[in-house]
Simulated scan of single mutants.
Amino acid sequence: MSEYQYYAFQALDRPLTREEREQLRAVSSRARITATSFTNTYNWGDLSGSPRRMTELYFDAHLYVTNWGTHRLMLRLPKRAMPLDTAQRYCLDHHVEAWTTRTHLLLDLTSEDEGGDWVEGADDALAALIGVRDELVVGDLRPLYLAWLSALTAWELEDDDEEEYRNCPEPPVPAGLAELSAPQQALADYLRVDPDLLAAAAQVSPAVPSKPAKPTKRELAPLITALPKREKDAFLLRLALGPEPHLRTELLHHLRGPASPSTAPGLRSAAQLLDAAHARRAERRQHTERRRTEARDQHLTALAREAESHWKQVHEHIGTKKTSAYDTAVTLLTELRDAYTHTGQEADFRTRLTHLRDNYRRRPALMERLDHCGLR
């Protein structure tokens, strides 16, 4: 299989200047560069620039997909949107990383599965994922927790030391893990979060708090009047210099008071979560197997009730003297054998099978098929 790497970068808060686009052209002569994006595909060679540095300087989102199993998403948020120490609680090895520049907080979320199948559409997922950035800006920590769960999924696949699992504490558990938004579900899929692990984690996740009512002029007017002059001037200056897409949200949070993210304390270890996920997985498989067995039993019971009709079909197929019809007849006979056994009539089946073999003993192609399937 040939090598495949896909790079996509997206500018959201402001378009790239002409000078910045020229700087990016020096990184790649083949990339498609617009005022808001940079995309390129490599089947040999690689990007000459650093994706981290490019995201720090120019872009608000970066997606990277390879055909050897790497799924990576980087997001750049305004620095004031989230304290670094809040993001760092969800960091785990190289799978989830957070750092700041002078103006921004950056998140690097990576899932790697070299043994996994190619995920169709993964290299076209940025549009579905981009919404998690806005959610993070307004204090929703579910995307970070999902990235942490993805890192645990990778740990389990790598079969690391169990002692490390026991010593790895769970970060704060955000509200609403049982009811993800569309961008969050896309993120969970992209980062390959194990559904059983997510279900286990969601058991202690608080319900999503009700959204605050839409602000009214009566509510906001006294709050704006009470705002200190220095803070008013700072907001007006930023508005004049704009555009800042999240300025309105930030101002509302500032006026109404910071809406601290609703979380529950992380009281479990990674080992306990992985064990809970394993138990859910085993229970689900047992339930699936029970339902499969019940369906099979019902099928065999119904088949036994209609046995005469199926024997007639067997003889009709054999009568055509076509090898393909022999295959169909043998398949029916195998099902009949199981149905007779299921209903306690195995002796009756063997008697009828013996008669059938005697009647068609001069058909070696049929006899060979019967023998191969244990219909002796």
Rank of each mutant, 00 (worst) to 15 (best):
S2P: 14
S2L: 04
Y4E: 07
Q5P: 06
Q10A: 12
Q10L: 14
A11D: 05
R18M: 05
R18C: 05
E19N: 03
E20G: 08
E20Y: 02
L24A: 05
R25H: 13
A31N: 08
T34W: 01
A35M: 06
A35C: 01
Y42K: 05
W44P: 00
L47A: 06
R52G: 11
H62L: 06
H62G: 02
V65Q: 03
T66W: 08
W68V: 15
G69Q: 01
M74F: 03
M74C: 10
K79C: 06
Q88A: 03
Q88W: 04
Q88N: 08
Y90I: 02
C91G: 09
H95T: 13
T100L: 09
T101R: 03
L109P: 02
E114G: 15
G116N: 08
V119Q: 15
G121S: 04
A122M: 02
D123I: 11
D123S: 04
A125E: 10
L126P: 03
A127N: 13
G131E: 02
V138Y: 07
D140G: 04
L144S: 05
Y145I: 03
T153M: 00
A154R: 12
L157P: 04
D159K: 10
E162H: 01
R166Q: 13
N167R: 14
N167D: 14
E170C: 11
P171Q: 01
P172E: 07
E179C: 03
L180M: 03
S181C: 00
S181H: 03
S181W: 03
P183Q: 07
R192G: 11
V193F: 02
L198T: 02
A199T: 15
A207Q: 07
V208P: 04
S210R: 10
S210P: 07
A213Y: 05
P215M: 09
T216H: 06
R218T: 15
A221H: 02
A221R: 09
T225V: 15
P228R: 06
P228F: 05
P228D: 09
P228Y: 06
R230E: 14
K232S: 07
L236A: 12
L239Y: 15
G242T: 11
E244P: 01
P245Q: 01
H246T: 11
R248S: 10
L251W: 05
H254C: 09
P258V: 14
A259W: 10
A259L: 13
L267P: 00
R268Y: 11
A270P: 08
A271F: 13
L273W: 02
D275V: 04
A276P: 05
A276N: 08
H278Y: 09
A279L: 14
E283F: 04
R285G: 09
Q286H: 10
H287D: 10
H287L: 13
R291E: 14
T293N: 12
R296N: 13
H299P: 00
L300E: 01
L303V: 03
A304H: 12
S309Y: 11
K312I: 01
Q313R: 14
V314W: 00
G319S: 05
T323K: 11
A325L: 08
A325T: 13
A325Q: 12
D327R: 13
T328H: 10
A329R: 01
L332R: 10
L332E: 10
L333Q: 06
E335V: 00
D338L: 11
Y340P: 07
T341E: 13
Q345R: 14
Q345G: 13
F349R: 09
L356H: 06
R357D: 08
R357G: 06
N359K: 14
L366G: 08
L366V: 12
G374I: 08
R376I: 14
